[in-house]
Design a binder for these strands. Structure first.
Length: 145
DNA sequence: GCCAACGTTGGC
DNA sequence: GCCAACGTTGGC
């Protein structure tokens, strides 16, 4: 069980659109970056991820779950690219902004801060709990909600 | 809309 | 295998 963060520009694919897909979830297509792809390849069913709005919003808006393992990206014939599927789990009661993350010394090493351009990134367990706490959730009991 | 950071491509 | 050119991401 690992934690992740997925970035999306809300005018391309928003949290509302993701939620509209319900438990069926949706393919996280369009990733054309090896690092991001490699992270997706290591994901397991049930892994949880923050859903982050980049460009506009600049905040963690919800929590999603990996519900299909990495498989060829259907939006390209280029066999180098594959991706997982994710489904929305729940909203963050309170959105956690990039500003909030940067202002928290505990999150100074978070990829969101240190690897600004990486669109799929790992989140450490203590970072997960901290961001959940800031968002009004107890990350430790999240699976029981 | 600008531009810095950084990943990718392609010539050599 | 280097590195300059180029393209893209994403914060501001």
């Amino acid at each position: 069980m690992q934690y992740w963060l997925f970035k999306s520009e809300p005018f391309k694919w928003s949290w509302d659109q993701q939620k509209a897909k319900g438990d069926a979830g949706e393919e996280w297509d369009g990733i054309r970056n090896y690092q991001a792809r490699n992270f997706m390849r290591t994901m397991e069913l049930g892994d949880l991820a923050f859903f982050y709005h980049s460009n506009e919003g600049l905040e963690v808006v919800g929590i999603a779950e990996v519900n299909a393992l990495s498989a060829p990206d259907t939006t390209t014939d280029d066999e180098r690219w594959d991706c997982v599927h994710i489904k929305a789990v729940r909203d963050m009661p309170k959105f956690v902004t990039l500003k909030d993350v940067k202002a928290n010394p505990k999150l100074a090493d978070m990829s969101l801060v240190t690897s600004m351009r990486l669109s799929v990134q790992p989140v450490k367990p203590d970072e997960w709990i901290e961001v959940c706490r800031m968002g009004g959730l107890d990350g430790r009991t999240l699976k029981d909600l």
